[in-house]
């Protein structure tokens, strides 16, 4: 059974590129903002989330805090160019979180594969 990946980002081009990169190996879901992302997290059993920080409607911190509030411990990779250390620190208080700076795409691909492969250990 294929692993499941959710990509939450407000840049449609990036979302499409990431979807193309991962869709051969994983079932990929996409969301343009945090609200849509949360809806998918509530409906599907997701193995890994690639999420941006700064998004319209609901930012990355709100997405992870609400996800954890519902008892969902899915790993989050925050893939972002936004370097707000205070916000990162707030997010890092939640378990299973990792920060990768854009545009390190190779590291993002490697880490996503590793996380999904080891999902049961996290």
């Amino acid at each position: 059974m294929k692993g499941t990946l959710l990509i939450v980002d407000d840049e449609p081009e990036l979302v499409q590129n990431l979807k193309n990169l991962f869709s051969d190996d994983f079932q990929v879901f996409t969301a343009g903002d945090g609200v849509q992302g949360l809806e998918i997290l509530n409906q599907r059993n997701i193995d890994c989330v690639i999420c941006d920080f700064s998004m319209p409607v609901m930012d990355g911190l709100q997405v992870i805090s609400k996800t954890r509030m519902f008892g969902n411990h899915v790993p989050f990779i925050f893939y972002t160019a936004y370097d707000n250390e205070a916000l990162k620190n707030q997010i890092a208080e939640y378990e299973n979180t990792l920060f990768l700076a854009k545009p390190n795409i190779k590291e993002l691909i490697d880490m996503t594969f590793i996380i999904i492969k080891n999902r049961s250990f996290l």
Partner: peptide, 19 residues
């Protein structure tokens, strides 16, 4: 610095997988 995390499980995973 490739990435940052305060989560020890994530760190261990990153290291043991040879990343």
């Amino acid at each position: 610095v490739l990435g940052e995390t305060n989560d020890i499980s994530m760190q261990k995973l990153f290291a043991s997988e040879g990343m």
